Amino acid sequence: MAQAIEEWYKQMPVIIRSYLTVSVVINIGCSLEIISPYNLYLNPTLVVKHYQFWRLVTNFLYFRKMDLDFMFHMFFLARYCKLLEENTFRGRTTDFLYMLLFGASVLTVIVLIGEMIPYLSASFARIIFLSNSLTFMMVVLAECLKGFGPW
């Protein structure tokens, strides 16, 4: 059983393997109270005024509680990102990384702009972790590009 999990992990493409590993480590660290989620969430004021730039990245790595929802997100990331990286972006790992960074940037800009619009700011202010949004972006993209193969 342990060897099957090890083989599965080693066969994953490098980008998604790295993302899953860092996400699991951060979530375990937060569950064991080694890392505080208050140091990970997206707060535009802290990013701009206090130069806490890591918040632009860490909000995509923390999935809140380690429960069934977390397991489903890890499953979706593993399955659909692996499909994207092995099929649509076959042999173009850098393109997959740029696509991932572009999607994360767009999600961040949407939240930051949404916080500035008066009537929407109350709903956008509650979005402090974008990890679930990035997972859903990958699932939708994988489903939309299914069957296209490498470009």
Rank of each mutant, 00 (worst) to 15 (best):
T93E: 11
Y80C: 03
T93Y: 09
I113A: 15
H73G: 14
T21K: 08
I34G: 06
L68P: 14
V48T: 11
Q52C: 05
A78I: 02
I117T: 08
W151A: 12
I117G: 10
I34K: 10
M1K: 04
F60C: 01
C81M: 08
G149M: 07
V22W: 12
Y62W: 14
D95I: 02
F70K: 05
A125V: 03
N39P: 13
E86W: 03
G149L: 04
A122L: 09
D69M: 13
L40C: 03
F124M: 12
F53R: 06
W54L: 07
L56S: 04
L130M: 02
F70W: 12
S131K: 10
A104C: 05
F89R: 00
D95P: 11
M138E: 00
I110D: 05
I113Y: 09
E143P: 05
R55E: 09
T58P: 07
N59I: 01
L112V: 07
M74H: 03
A125P: 05
L107A: 03
G114D: 06
I35R: 07
T58K: 11
M71V: 02
V24M: 14
E143G: 06
F136P: 11
V111T: 10
V139Y: 00
W8Y: 14
F96E: 00
V47T: 06
G114M: 09
L112M: 15
G103N: 15
C81V: 03
L42M: 10
N39H: 14
N59D: 00
V111Q: 14
Q11H: 09
P13T: 04
R90M: 08
I128N: 05
V109P: 13
L42Y: 15
M99G: 07
K49A: 08
F75Q: 14
K82M: 03
V24Y: 09
N59Q: 03
G29K: 10
T21H: 12
V140Q: 12
F96R: 02
L20A: 14
L40V: 02
P150A: 14
F76Y: 01
R17P: 07
Y80W: 02
L46Q: 10
Y19A: 11
V57F: 12
V22P: 14
P150C: 09
G114F: 02
T58A: 14
F148I: 02
L141T: 00
S121N: 08
V109W: 11
Y9D: 04
D67P: 06
C81Q: 00
K146Y: 03
G103P: 10
